[in-house]
Simulated scan of single mutants.
Amino acid sequence: MSAPRAHSLDLDPERVTNDLAALVLTVVELLRQLMERQAVRRFDEGTLSGEQEERLGTALMLL
C-alpha cells in the first residue's frame, strides 16, 4: 500500500472551467485598461486625427 500524496491537484472539471473563465476575464480587463490608457495618452499628445479621436471615443464609450 502506498502513502497518500502530499501534493495533489483538484481537477474538478467545473472548478477548472470557472477558474479558467476568471483568468480569461482578468486578462481581457487588463487589456481593456491598457488600451484605454493608450488612447487617453494619444488624446493628450494630440497624435490623433479628428476621425481617429471620434472612433476612439465611440469605442471607449461602448466598452
Rank of each mutant, 00 (worst) to 15 (best):
M35N: 10
A21L: 14
P13M: 04
M61K: 15
Q33L: 12
L60H: 00
L9M: 02
V28Q: 11
R55F: 09
L48H: 00
A22R: 15
V27D: 14
L30N: 10
L23S: 14
D12G: 03
V40A: 06
D19V: 04
L20K: 09
A6T: 02
M1W: 13
E45M: 07
A39N: 04
R15Q: 08
Q38V: 13
L63F: 08
A21F: 13
T58M: 07
T58I: 15
L25H: 12
P13D: 05
L25M: 13
T17G: 09
R37P: 03
L60C: 00
A22H: 05
H7Y: 12
G46C: 02
L30C: 07
L34M: 04
A21G: 06
E51A: 13
A3K: 15
R15D: 03
V28P: 01
R42W: 13
E54F: 15
Q33V: 11
M35K: 05
E36G: 04
S8C: 06
R37G: 14
V28N: 08
G57N: 04
V28G: 03
H7V: 10
E36F: 08
L9H: 01
E36Y: 06
Q38P: 00
L20V: 11
L34Q: 02
L11V: 06
D19C: 12
G57D: 01
P13G: 04
D44N: 04
L23Y: 11
P4M: 07
T26E: 11
Q33G: 13
D19Q: 14
E54S: 12
T26L: 11
G57R: 09
Q38L: 04
E14F: 01
T26Y: 07
D19I: 02
D44F: 01
A3S: 09
L31R: 09
V16P: 00
